[in-house]
Write a protein that binds this DNA or RNA. Structure first.
Lengths: 218, 218
DNA sequence: TAGATTGTTAATCGATTAACAATC
DNA sequence: TAGATTGTTAATCGATTAACAATC
């Protein structure tokens, strides 16, 4: 299925989006969808949609289209959403709490089983029934409980140390919110949410559109 | 400078990263840097770095390299970070509060001047000295105070309505955290932070690396 | 001046789109 | 069977890399 051919980053970024729209269709009770209909909905070309899906398998039926339900399930499998991930979060500050409540609310297989912080004032408290434990317990906890994912919501300075600890404990992936590019061995998955860079992108876009308008007025 | 040639999305996404690394060098007191040194640091090829920068102007000096300080300042200008943005946030829940405190902490020209929520229990409360106002005041507030940016941290169902209201009020850009693709007129800038899609990407990467390992063992 | 490194053109690579044969 | 739509190959487009002349 994923037959060792490296999937390009461009495709990977589109997959969760396909899934999201398929889910919408599914909830609406739509049974089948063609690449053309999907194209109108999602905004990618029909050709691209067919190409993308066909890197993973032939999920459609010629002359008919795609079964919404089937394609949705296949996308879940492709995305690895057909299983549970045991997750810990490190850095139980504002962002950490918000993320904890967020993943709790949208619970979809990412089960945060413990929070960690090195602030003694926070240790022992709970966020959504999840206890905050001291940072020094992190590595053992990860190892003993077979934790799959570590979420990093500490500051820039501690982020690499936290990542190293999580990896020593044996996590498979890291969801990083610290504004830094972590050094990570090749076999560990990493996904960054760089909020300030996102905000700077918005700033760039605002400025670009202002410049466009100025030029139009010339 | 930005002379109406459309900047590709690929380049735009790299710009904040350049800025981040230039800032690191600047703080270290480094005065000059070559595209080769930058390449080792950031991980893009030297050629790409020179290409990228030259879409905005010739910031370097042949035989010497780039002045860290000058390039950093130019990047700030390019990114529109040489000004202040008046900002409001709509949806003062967990994520909203966290984002408010976050931008407050990293304050870099994005000044959140008011929060909005339609929950009467929240209205009147404060987050970091910023008051929570009732949602029905949003449009007038945006108009009367010349708000530039609206941050959306409400749920999926209300997000489009919030966006419409912000746009009627006259914002120039929207930073959207709701898991939906907003319908936005062309002259408004939009930047999405789709956390669940980011998490799904991580899930995909974890699964991919597992598959890789399995194949190696065959 | 000689050495270094940019700015920029040309070559390559990869991703997207178009086209159409296969087939339901 | 005829019509529709996929799966897939071929053509195009755009982005990245390589190369080198310009120049500090």
């Amino acid at each position: 299925m994923n037959n060792n051919t490296k999937i390009s980053n461009a495709i990977i970024r589109r997959l969760p989006r396909y899934r999201r729209y398929l889910n919408i269709l599914r909830k609406r009770g739509v049974k089948k969808v063609s690449s053309n209909e999907l194209s109108e909905l999602i905004g990618y070309t029909a050709s691209q949609i067919r190409q993308d899906l066909n890197t993973f398998g032939g999920f459609g039926q010629q002359g008919y289209g795609y079964s919404v339900d089937h394609l949705y399930k296949e996308l879940n499998k492709i995305l690895g959403l057909d299983r549970e991930y045991k997750t810990v979060l490190v850095g139980a500050g504002n962002m950490g709490s918000a993320i904890t409540k967020y993943t709790y609310y949208y619970k979809i297989g990412f089960n945060i089983v413990a929070l960690f912080d090195n602030n003694p004032a926070l240790v022992g408290q709970k966020v959504n029934d999840v206890e905050i434990l001291p940072f020094e317990d992190l590595e053992d906890f990860v190892r003993d409980n077979g934790i799959d994912i570590g979420i990093i919501t500490v500051n820039q300075e501690s982020a690499q140390d936290v990542a190293d600890t999580l990896i020593r404990g044996g996590v498979k992936g890291i969801w990083n919110f610290a504004p830094i590019d972590l050094e990570i061995p090749d076999h560990i998955a990493i996904e960054n949410v760089h909020l300030s860079e996102s905000l700077h992108t918005l700033s760039f876009l605002i400025r670009s559109k202002e410049l466009e308008r100025e030029e139009e007025n010339n």
